[in-house]
């Protein structure tokens, strides 16, 4: 046990670097995923048919092909087109596109879940479609979205471990390094615990956001983990 602890102490700086890479992938991936989800989610409810089709094709494409395939495509094939990216950026884009496609479904589902009466009420007040979305629909859909995003963010954090496949020295990689000097159970126990804490922190953060959003709408603080998040 003391050997394990000593090895852990020696490995701390490297573990820190690993956590830093994992967090970069998480934050970068989440940011890209958020933008992708909002853009394609809104396109998918657009009144213009072609825009909806584009959104459907893109979303189904990125949901239907595996994250690992997308990652390898970006990493191995994009350079053919003369696009060479840093590995972290490659990971961020792959995570962002893949989870963003799932997120687009959350955005679409949440907006559709807003009571039809709200759309009609806003229209009856002669609001423009933009104002209606921005002032009336979006704030209500946002509460539902946060619950879905919460699940998605945890998935994305778990997904960052694919970084290993393109040679990044993320948390998963550093755990495997640590294993060389310690018991397997010790190294992986520490590693899984670290991942769990990161996911827990992210999840708790989003739940706090959700609570705040609910309060703003005058809803009770209890969280609804309903339809929006379930269908990943």
């Amino acid at each position: 046990m003391t050997d394990n602890l000593e090895a852990l102490r020696d490995a701390l700086p490297r573990l820190g670097e690993g956590v830093a890479i994992t967090l970069q992938l998480t934050l970068g991936g989440a940011l890209v995923a958020f933008i992708v989800s909002v853009v394609f989610g809104l396109l998918s409810i657009s009144p213009a048919g072609p825009l909806r089709w584009v959104s459907t094709v893109v979303v189904e494409f990125f949901r239907g092909t595996s994250l690992v395939v997308q990652l390898f495509w970006l990493y191995y094939v994009m350079p053919l087109f003369g696009v060479s990216m840093d590995a972290v950026l490659t990971g961020v884009i792959a995570l962002g596109l893949n989870y963003g496609a799932y997120g687009a479904e959350i955005v679409r589902g949440s907006i559709n879940a807003v009571d039809k009466g709200q759309w009609e009420g806003a229209t009856a007040l002669n609001m423009s479609p933009l104002t209606r979305m921005r002032r009336i629909i979006w704030p209500q859909a946002w509460v539902l979205m946060l619950s879905g995003y919460n699940n998605l963010l945890v998935m994305l954090i778990k997904g960052t471990a694919v970084a290993l496949f393109i040679g990044l020295q993320d948390l998963g990689y550093q755990i495997d390094e640590l294993r060389v000097d310690t018991a397997t159970i010790f190294a992986y126990g520490i590693g899984l615990l670290l991942y769990y804490l990161i996911a827990l922190a992210a999840s708790t953060g989003l739940r706090a956001l959700e609570k705040r959003a609910r309060r703003r709408l005058g809803l009770s603080a209890g969280s609804v983990h309903a339809s929006a998040g379930a269908a990943l």
């Binding site: 954090i157 997904g159 471990a161 998963g172 397997t184 991942y195 769990y196």
Partner: peptide
């Protein structure tokens, strides 16, 4: 169950392969 669900499958696979 929460820990299994909230940690990466890839890391779990590697863990099991060494166990």
């Amino acid at each position: 169950m929460d820990v299994i669900r909230m940690t990466p499958l890839i890391v779990q696979l590697m863990f099991a392969s060494f166990l």
